[in-house]
């Protein structure tokens, strides 16, 4: 009985800490505004069966590069919501078809697939992989409008920071869906997201980060899921 009371007291004692943690999580997440545009044709209403999907990043631009983490995030978003969809990892796909999907050699138009398939080893590998849809994502998340100052110091008695910083993050991604069987483009999904992050510092800096890239990932992932999945 005493032990049970102690446990109960312990649970009550931990409540403020738990509430503080929840409050902290809410406080440390900035706000994000997101827009998604979609245009798709020939949706596979019965799902894609045992075929596979590959999501690849476009890496042709000189001043930015579609982040591999973003591609991974979109793939995980789709596979976790509908586990009947097999999403091949970008690196595995590109490695297994090297050198045909490097930035220099990757097909730019659906018609280029025909030319690739004229090579027997490439056609065989793609047949083994059962790739039905190839999704190309192009875009990046950039940081802009950073302002504010922060000063940090350290002395014999301790250290700390004082100041305030803020910056904006903007994501802009476009996914183009290619149907491998018909060698045709069957959809485009565009997502933009903007968010402002803050970092006030009174002794300890407290980052309040806007999850801009994560929101863009969820937005584009959800639309692709609706296209590919029979359940959504």
């Amino acid at each position: 009985m005493i032990a049970r009371n102690l446990l109960r007291i312990g649970a009550w004692a931990r409540l403020p800490a738990a509430l503080g943690l929840c409050f902290g999580i809410i406080l440390t997440t900035g706000c994000v505004t997101s827009t998604v545009d979609e245009m798709v044709f020939n949706e596979p209403v019965e799902g894609i069966g045992d075929a596979t999907v590959v999501i690849l990043g476009r890496r042709h631009a000189s001043d930015y590069e579609t982040e591999p983490d973003f591609i991974d995030c979109v793939g995980k978003h789709i596979a976790s919501r509908d586990n009947s969809i097999t999403v091949i990892s970008e690196l595995d796909f590109v490695n297994s078809l090297y050198p045909w999907f490097e930035p220099r050699t990757a097909p730019l138009h659906p018609a280029d697939i025909e030319r690739l398939l004229q090579q027997r080893p490439v056609a065989q590998r793609l047949e083994e992989l059962k790739t039905e849809y190839m999704i190309w994502i192009d875009g990046a998340t950039v940081q802009s409008d950073s302002t504010g100052t922060m000063t940090c110091g350290i002395g014999p008695g301790g250290g700390g920071c004082f100041g305030f910083g803020t910056w904006s993050n903007d994501s802009d991604y476009e996914a183009v869906i290619w149907d491998f069987t018909d060698r045709a483009e069957v959809g485009r999904v565009n997502t933009t997201a903007t968010g402002q992050s803050y970092m006030p510092a009174v002794v300890i800096p407290i980052p309040i980060i806007a999850p801009v890239q994560g929101t863009a990932c969820d937005g584009i992932g959800e639309q692709l899921l609706q296209f590919l999945s029979a359940e959504y």
Binding site: Y98, E102, R104, T105
Partner: peptide, 10 residues
């Protein structure tokens, strides 16, 4: 290096 390989192979 991967790009060099792709360029050479193709």
């Amino acid at each position: 290096l991967r790009d060099a390989g792709a360029n050479f192979a193709t």
